[in-house]
Design a protein around this nucleic acid. Structure first.
Lengths: 145, 145
DNA sequence: CATTTGTTGACAAACTCACTTAACTATCAA
DNA sequence: TTGATAGTTAAGTGAGTTTGTCAACAAATG
């Protein structure tokens, strides 16, 4: 049930960008990497994925960097983790954003599958939290590192 | 946030053993594998882990097999998944059964770490469901495959 | 004893994770 | 235009995990 380092780094990077959102200034990958202790080349891939997903804008050249292009209150942790790690559901057959039929389960497709009942509840709980937890909430707790 | 095939197979195997619990008869790995479409050698490893964890007993020779040694209502899905997949927490620093300090996070150890706040809530939600969901509940939904 | 079954341990292909390298392209300042 | 800065992209890599297989052995049953 773990999330990947990719998602963890992504959230920590977005934390930096959220804190800089008011000033609407660009933050360079270099600074993010230094403040959050993230390997810079790996961070690039992450920022790029978030950019392609429409959460960030970037600018090259001097004073370039990355910037949020949505309000922090309009981005949920659920969105971010889905972008970087894929679906939240513990198993494909209960995913709402990326459903996949089980192939080998004797209950396949049957709504009374016990695995689906249990894991469906877990999925709803996870999504219920992460989809209602915005970057603004996320950054709110975070003063004085 | 996925669970492994190992856990999924483990739960499906325990489903079979739960259904046979009333009769207190031994179920052979062969039958479990056939009914649940689980590779038999892989299933063995799983049953063995569950046996070492004290959930199952086994008997050799004719009419041998595996059997639950606790009431299905006394075994939670959370226990099973922890045995087969490790801690439920999405990240080590919020695990209650296997806490691990983050090494590279700038908030390491600080209770106001935003990652800990968010992921702690997720952990509690997952554990709240899986630790209160017994094998008896699990099997209850499951008739007529 | 013969048969059935469980136990152990080694092994391995396939895949994923967590990065790294290196060659690009775009922007800005001088 | 030139050079420095900074983001973009594709590809590769080493370590580790997942998902199994295989073979030999040990124990119980009839």
């Amino acid at each position: 049930m773990k999330i990947s380092k990719k998602s963890e780094y992504g959230l920590r990077a977005l934390l930096e960008l959220t804190l800089a959102y008011e000033a609407s200034s660009f933050v360079q990958r270099h600074d993010i990497a230094a403040r959050q202790h993230i390997p810079i080349e790996f961070l690039e891939q992450i920022l790029l994925a978030l950019k392609r997903a429409g959460l960030l804008a970037s600018r090259r050249g001097m004073n370039g960097g990355y910037r949020l292009i949505k309000q922090p209150s309009a981005i949920s942790l659920g969105q971010v983790i889905r972008i970087l790690d894929g679906p939240l559901a513990p198993i494909g057959c209960v995913s709402k954003t990326a459903y996949q039929k089980c192939d080998d389960c004797p209950y396949a497709g049957c709504p009374s599958c016990p695995v689906q009942q249990a894991m469906g509840a877990v999925r709803d709980a996870i999504a219920g939290i992460l989809d209602n937890y915005s970057l603004a909430d996320f950054a709110a707790g975070a003063r004085t590192p």
